[in-house]
Simulated scan of single mutants.
Amino acid sequence: MTATGTWDQGTFAAAVGAAVWAPSIHNSQPWRFRRTTRGIDVLVDPGRVLPVCDPEGRAARVSCGAAAANLALALAVAGAPATCTVGRCGAVVHLAPDVARAATPLERRLHRQIPRRHTNRAPFAETRVDPGVVAQLARAVADEGGWLDFVEDGPELDALAALTRQAYVHLRADAGYVAELRAWSETADVDVEGVGRQAAGTAPHPAELMPRRDFGGPERAATRDPTRSPVVAVYGVHGEPAADEVRAGIVLQRLLLLAADHGLAVAMYSQPIEVPAVRERLRLALHRVHDPQLVLRFGYAPTTCYTNRRPVADVIDDADAG
């Protein structure tokens, strides 16, 4: 750190290099990082908010929160721990009072998972997740003001699957949505953004209980849907948007890294959240006061292919702010 209490350029750039591995819808990477005299700002890049899929910027705010979580972990492991103060359009990472403390073993473990974690778009193995691990994930989320509602196999899972299919059909009927999806997938295999065919896995199959997003992957002649074997849950946080959507991203990223630390793969379904009417039906079905943020599946699956990331220099604002 510099004498003024901010991070030097090398520490800052290295931490941003970890931050950009956060998840984002269509791998749009809607964040910018600005080093200031008081810390680091993680801000939504309005030019990368998806106008059709995310018109209100909800998903972009969640992604900025996830990036801030990675940033804070990287700073802690570098010996310069930080605390996150959440704002409406991003997250501000401030210096923590205990700047001299060493990173905890958990921080080091989660930090190691940052480049390893990726969204699973491949079939899961029919291997049961240890209930003790499931309980640890739920407890970790609850400790940070969030909630995980696990959906049991049977009528509850069928109802969630029906809502997911409704959202999928609704979105696919929107020509603007399809065009936007294609724009973020057609050149992604050779680009630094988007989700290409290599990372997308196979195309969604009609027999899938919960249809995945179609990024143009190859067709499958048949499918053995493994949805009922992995753990299915709905994730959310206690609080109101939009600041709490940033906080939802911070808690979500720690959850994803903790799951990766336990060897779990995670698939994410945002489609039921993207359609307001479906999101409201899901909230009512869960008897929750606040909107759900994401549908998740935890299980075991081989690593397939990672999505690309933009260079660090492309996401940093050049001039330091006062």
Rank of each mutant, 00 (worst) to 15 (best):
G196W: 08
A102G: 14
C84H: 03
T83L: 12
R128C: 09
A122G: 00
G90N: 13
R108E: 10
A59M: 11
A162Y: 05
T164V: 08
V169K: 02
D98V: 09
R197D: 01
P123D: 11
G145T: 14
V151M: 08
D158F: 04
A68W: 01
D143Q: 12
T164I: 01
V86Q: 06
A66S: 14
V93F: 06
G65F: 06
A74E: 11
R139L: 13
L181C: 10
R182Y: 04
A140V: 03
G176Y: 05
A91N: 02
R117A: 01
S63C: 08
L106Q: 10
P97Y: 07
A66Q: 06
A96D: 10
P105C: 11
E107N: 10
D153T: 13
A175M: 00
D191N: 12
A138D: 13
F150C: 09
L95H: 14
V93K: 03
E180K: 04
G146V: 11
D189T: 11
R172Y: 00
A183I: 00
T104C: 07
G145C: 08
R101K: 12
A60N: 09
V62H: 04
R121D: 03
L148N: 13
R61S: 07
C89M: 11
G176F: 08
A103C: 08
W147Q: 09
Y168Q: 02
R197W: 03
R109M: 11
A103D: 06
T104I: 12
A167P: 01
A66F: 08
P123S: 05
H118Q: 13
P81W: 01
D143A: 15
E156V: 11
L95N: 12
L95Y: 05
A142C: 04
I114T: 08
V141H: 05
G145F: 09
V190R: 15
E126F: 14
G87P: 03
Q166W: 01
V92G: 01
A138T: 12
P97E: 13
D153Y: 03
H111W: 13
L71V: 07
D189I: 10
A59V: 02
V178I: 10
A91R: 05
R172P: 00
V99C: 05
V133Y: 03
Q136R: 13
Q166K: 01
P97N: 12
H111P: 01
L181R: 14
D98T: 15
C53E: 10
T119C: 08
P81H: 06
A72F: 02
V77K: 06
E152D: 15
D143R: 14
R117C: 03
P105S: 12
P123E: 09
E180R: 04
A102D: 15
A59Q: 10
A161F: 02
D158E: 15
V52S: 02
D189F: 04
R112W: 04
A102F: 07
V99E: 06
D153N: 14
R108H: 07
A173Y: 05
D130R: 08
